[in-house]
């Protein structure tokens, strides 16, 4: 089980309007199910917010906040090990999320699906045998019906607590 936080930047363009950037952030509670030595399935419950864009050109893209459920298949391999520092693993993941946000200052909720990809670096410290620390770079495509396109990336930090002693 893990906890994580992500800072994001989203580039979106609405129909008839140009692209703009929106900054945001989120947190996630992860449930991790190892599948074999290299792969694992991560399901997450997430909360997120995206701030409005700037107002240049007399328009802005609205801010929104909401919740999401996601599932991601991650694969990784050990690339460094030190008895004193621990183990480092690099990998990537592919997944999908279902999001239900609402626009700021409104009672308007909307839904969209979000395919995701992620590169990550895991560190299992030698002195903390039950913990993993993860640095990730997620990339997501928001399949929103009201946008010409919307893509986001960011930086994520997370900590994972492993139950049991198997490694």
């Amino acid at each position: 089980m893990g906890l994580g936080g992500t800072g994001t930047v989203t580039m979106s363009a609405g129909q008839g309007f140009g692209p703009k950037l929106q900054y945001g952030g989120g947190f996630a509670i992860d449930f991790v199910f190892p599948l074999d030595k290299w792969t694992r399935l991560v399901t997450s419950i997430e909360g997120f917010t995206v701030a409005p864009s700037d107002i240049s050109g007399g328009f802005l893209y609205r801010g929104y906040s909401g919740a999401a459920l996601s599932m991601m298949l991650q694969a990784g391999a050990v690339f460094a090990f030190s008895p004193s520092l621990g183990l480092m693993r690099v990998g990537g993941g592919l997944g999908v999320a279902a999001a239900l946000p609402s626009y700021w200052y409104t009672t308007l909720a909307f839904f969209y699906l979000e395919p995701r990809a992620q590169a990550f670096l895991d560190w299992e410290p030698a002195g903390l045998p039950h913990f993993d620390f993860q640095l990730s770079v997620p990339v997501a495509l928001q399949l929103r019906g009201d946008m010409s396109y919307s893509v986001s990336t960011g930086i994520g930090l997370g900590v994972l607590y492993r139950f049991g002693n198997d490694k």
């Binding site: 240049s56 770079v137 990339v139």
Partner: peptide
């Protein structure tokens, strides 16, 4: 891989200047 990821992120973060939305409303 690291360089590619950083390049993508940097390009997105710097992309404000790519768009010309001078002024607010004419």
């Amino acid at each position: 891989i690291r360089r590619a990821a950083l390049a993508v992120l940097a390009a997105l973060l710097c992309s404000c200047s790519m768009f010309d939305y001078s002024g607010i409303v004419t």
